[in-house]
Amino acid sequence: MAQWTLACHRLGKRFGERWVFRGLELELGTGARLIVRGANGSGKSTLLRLIAGLLAPTEGRIELRANGRPVPDRTRVIGWCAADAALYRELTGYEHLHWWAQTRGLPSDRPTLMAHLERFELAHRAHEWVRAYSTGMRQRLRLALATYGDPPLLLLDEPDAGLDPSGLKLLQQVLDEQTRCGIALFATNRAECAAWGDLALELGA
């Protein structure tokens, strides 16, 4: 099993004249579960988007390593789920996962995809357009996409938004499973989720 390391060195991001954060140092290994907290605008989502490769840092660098070797394109091996991440409204949940699996070179056979959707309690609505999904179901689909293929690094930006109690339980299971073989970063300000992490990073403090 690969040993994964996520390292951020002197990381900083500026939008216009305003620095969101500067000089951030972070190193996490397999099994780490980091909760990122902070007030609105403190840079929680920005940090996760930087790590995902969706934003470029203004200064510093980010590296994902497998057994000490840098992963060249980390964007395509990470799992990312954000409450405001848009989905294709005119595709079904199944079509989303099938497309995701094909573009990422993951198993795309029907039984495997349906089993994964079943895990997120979406199998019974798998062939409905996403525009017909509730907020909570869309969030479950985002989680299903983020976790498909067991990514070594899972980035969750307020993934608890819109989830019912069973969804929150599922989210906790996802985090437990992730930390068995990978790294999880979880941005939230929800008090009941604070205990889910074994490390915490307070931004804007």
């Binding site: 969706l54 964007t75 395509r76 990312w80 848009a86 996409l145």
Partner: peptide, 8 residues
């Protein structure tokens, strides 16, 4: 963003 994460 989904597209950026999915494919090179």
């Amino acid at each position: 963003d989904l597209l950026r994460l999915a494919a090179r």
